[in-house]
Design a protein around this nucleic acid. Structure first.
Lengths: 227, 227
DNA sequence: TAGATTGTTAATCGATTAACAATC
DNA sequence: TAGATTGTTAATCGATTAACAATC
């Protein structure tokens, strides 16, 4: 079995993607609780809110440390702080976006949504007509400045909101410029080197799979039967 | 074990969400192949393109029927047709959207992306200033018309693109109006009755979990070690 | 103390992968 | 026919859940 070790040599349990993907969800609920001045929360309560098994929540968190207190639960503020550290949100991450179309502009305006020290700090577009256009406090820049700006502003994450046909080119540009992660909104699969992480945010997948679960038009429900 | 049976009494294998979620991805790749006039494709080739195990692809498809030919592979056009049927994309599905903000408008303009017979056919907003505004061929309508329009236009899927704080109200409205599925873009968990399917398209989850995989600032890579 | 709740091990469940007979 | 590739069963792998000692 391949095992990672930290510099100090402790075995690092390989943490699955499913676990990592739940962390932002925990963060969301914890932020709500914090706003409502809740001090402490148990895995049971979190599980109720999220439709998740409490044991799973405890196990997820335990991968990263002992954040709870037996008999008490988790301190909301402390847990928020810890999860933010795990997700590197304590660092201040700069994000670049390519594709100043409708979706791209929406994301720029959402910049408050991307709170947590993550911020879109540069927007690019291939269309000459878009260059110089202001989106909030950002000004659209031409693609030939991508690399320079990414380096200059220490941009570590790239967002792609161009049509599918151009997405691979943009990804290549981001990779060459040295970003470490890419979030792709175009409905297409991209090839990037192993050292670059790529996540997909293609809502068409969610929308089309949603259709599967609709009742077939004019179909009666079939009865579940015990076997 | 709980088993579903069709009206004719055959046992219907319970199909996992993971399988259903891969179907739109297959569809996407198959569409590309079709555009390039490829007639036939093997699970091996599909697997290469998608970084998926060929056996998994064969198994996924076999849940729904025998679509391939031994020794030959899958006929691209036929498989597209079949997957479209499975996802009910052959039916013509009407979609309603609440929240004519930046993201909502982006999705309306994306209406071509939602090809495949799925179409946003009504847009609503709670803000009086937005009522009557044209987005493409759509005109923003007030919330008090939601139910009537959903019924009149046979809208079966609702999209939510309002701020998190209002999302639950909108969801309740959709449910009351009788939609069967909801796609929620707001970064919050919603409660809906069991008979309504809900999918989440919150990109903040993808973005925050992406940050986890960045190299820690100023950290050397740890070496994988065999155990 | 008694009750609550964590962190963690063991048991279960389900999903992915390998292997192969069937067959084009 | 020989080679290729499916559909499917069996084996493996990994993720979720249950259970419980530790302890607040």
């Amino acid at each position: 079995m391949v095992v990672r070790r930290s510099r100090r040599g402790e075995v690092m349990k390989k943490i699955s993607e499913a676990v990592v993907r739940r962390l932002p969800v925990y963060l969301q609920v914890l932020s709500d609780l914090s706003k409502r001045d809740v001090q402490t929360v148990s895995s049971q309560e979190l599980g109720n809110k999220l439709d998740l098994n409490p044991a799973q929540i405890r196990k997820d968190l335990a991968y990263f440390g002992e954040f709870g207190r037996k008999g008490i639960g988790y301190d909301v503020s402390y847990l928020i702080e810890k999860i933010r550290q795990i997700l590197k949100l304590d660092q201040g991450l700069n994000v670049g976006l390519v594709g100043a179309g409708n979706l791209g502009r929406a994301l720029c305006n959402y910049n408050t949504y991307l709170k947590d020290n993550m911020k879109i700090t540069a927007v690019f577009d291939a269309n000459p007509a878009m260059i110089g256009v202001a989106i909030n406090s950002l000004v659209v820049m031409p693609m030939d400045q991508l690399k320079d700006i990414v380096v200059a502003r220490n941009i570590r994450i790239g967002i792609i909101t161009v049509p599918a046909a151009e997405a691979q080119n943009v990804a290549d540009g981001f990779v060459e410029a040295g970003v470490e992660g890419i979030l792709n909104f175009a409905p297409t699969i991209l090839r990037v080197p192993e050292h670059v992480r790529i996540h997909y945010a293609d809502f068409t997948t969610e929308l089309l799979s949603l259709a599967y679960y609709l009742e077939k038009e004019g179909d009666e429900t079939d009865e579940p039967v015990m076997d």
